[in-house]
């Protein structure tokens, strides 16, 4: 246990984030490109064995065509293999400061490679998940961190100052949790420009979700610190003349670590979903830009989407990300003297 596990999960999370960061390179398609003839097309998995049962070293895909018996569905066109190639040239596009002229992989198939199928507009789900995860995971992790840090500060203030500061901040917690922020947000939206670029939206999302999320962590920290302060060894240290600041940083705050890490890992998915709420009020990302939350919420808005299993992939992707955040939190907790 301990540091080794933590490091393992750190690498894994780093890898996920790097992949989504390089979405422009990894994604085989533009996230907004609509191919209307390929609405709700099923995934085209990479294959090694062709329709005749022959094995090929280079993976390939089959092109899709409408099923002549049921024009709503698609079937493979098995008379031609389209090998998957790596580092394929593509139209130039901007990735940060660089101009990319290649994609990590692609095929010559006329219907393209769709690892996870396509959505209503025939947009590639795999590409959209990558782009969406980039926005959502970073926004979620940052907003979660912001909320936890604010909560830590508020909770610490409650305990170190006590008295009316404590009472005031705790009533603020109750206010924060009960207030209909929604109305305020709709109000704020009316003063913002009609259409907003993704970058300010990203910052706004983090700021809003982060600042509104401080309440629960604050109460948790306060509770833990209140008890911790009275522990025998802390009292003893105080008796030996340790300064309050020393006590706080050396003995008290470390005790909140486990709870806060747990809370953080729980906040990340909430932030991802909160972004959907923001989008609903015109404050989050808007079509055609994807976010994990909006990709998932498609499931609840159309009865039909539930019957297309590949529409569940965004939820699976988010689930995996959450899993790894929790494992990371666990690993960081366990890495103590055991």
């Amino acid at each position: 246990m301990g540091t080794k596990v933590a490091r393992k999960w750190l690498w894994w999370i780093l890898a996920i984030h790097l992949v989504v960061l390089a979405a422009e390179l990894v994604a085989p398609h533009d996230f907004a490109r609509q191919v209307r003839t390929l609405s709700f097309a099923p995934p085209t998995p990479p294959r090694w064995i062709d329709a005749e049962g022959r094995f090929h070293w280079r993976p390939f895909v089959y092109a899709l065509q409408r099923d002549p018996r049921n024009p709503r569905e698609f079937i493979d066109t098995t008379n031609e293999r389209h090998p998957i190639r790596f580092w394929v040239p593509s139209e130039p596009r901007q990735m940060g400061p660089m101009v990319l002229k290649y994609r990590l992989f692609g095929t010559s198939s006329p219907t393209g490679i769709h690892l996870l199928g396509t959505d209503r507009y025939g947009r590639d789900m795999f590409s959209r998940i990558l782009y969406g995860a980039r926005l959502s995971l970073f926004a979620g992790a940052l907003a979660g961190t912001l909320a936890v840090v604010l909560g830590l500060i508020a909770g610490t203030l409650c305990v170190t100052w006590g008295g009316w500061v404590d009472a005031f901040l705790m009533r603020m917690v109750e206010l924060t949790i009960s207030l209909p922020w929604l109305y305020l947000l709709i109000g704020v939206r009316a003063f913002l420009p009609l259409s907003m670029d993704p970058v300010p939206v990203f910052v706004l999302t983090i700021a809003l979700v982060g600042t509104l999320g401080w309440a629960v962590p604050a109460r948790l920290v306060r509770g833990v610190l209140k008890t911790a302060r009275e522990q025998d060894y802390v009292q003893a240290a105080r008796g030996f003349g340790a300064s309050e600041a020393h006590l706080l940083f050396k003995h008290l705050l470390p005790q909140t670590r486990d709870t806060l890490l747990t809370q953080w890992a729980l906040l990340v998915p909430k932030c991802v979903m909160a972004e959907v709420t923001l989008s609903f009020f015109g404050l989050g990302v808007q079509e055609p830009f994807p976010s994990l939350g909006s990709l998932i919420s498609v499931l609840t808005e159309a009865h039909g989407a539930m019957t297309r299993v590949w529409m569940f992939w965004p939820a699976v992707a988010l689930g995996l990300a959450i899993l790894s955040y929790h494992l990371l939190a666990e690993a960081l907790q366990q890495h103590r003297d055991v």
Binding site: A147, T176, I177, S178, L179, P180, W181, L182, Y183, V209, L212, G213, A215, V216, L267, K270, C271, M273, A274, V276, T277, F280, G293, S297, T300, E301
Partner: peptide
């Protein structure tokens, strides 16, 4: 559409 923001963003949300 519904999303749970839970304790984060207030009940109303």
């Amino acid at each position: 559409r519904s999303a749970r923001v839970g304790c984060l963003l207030s009940v109303a949300w």
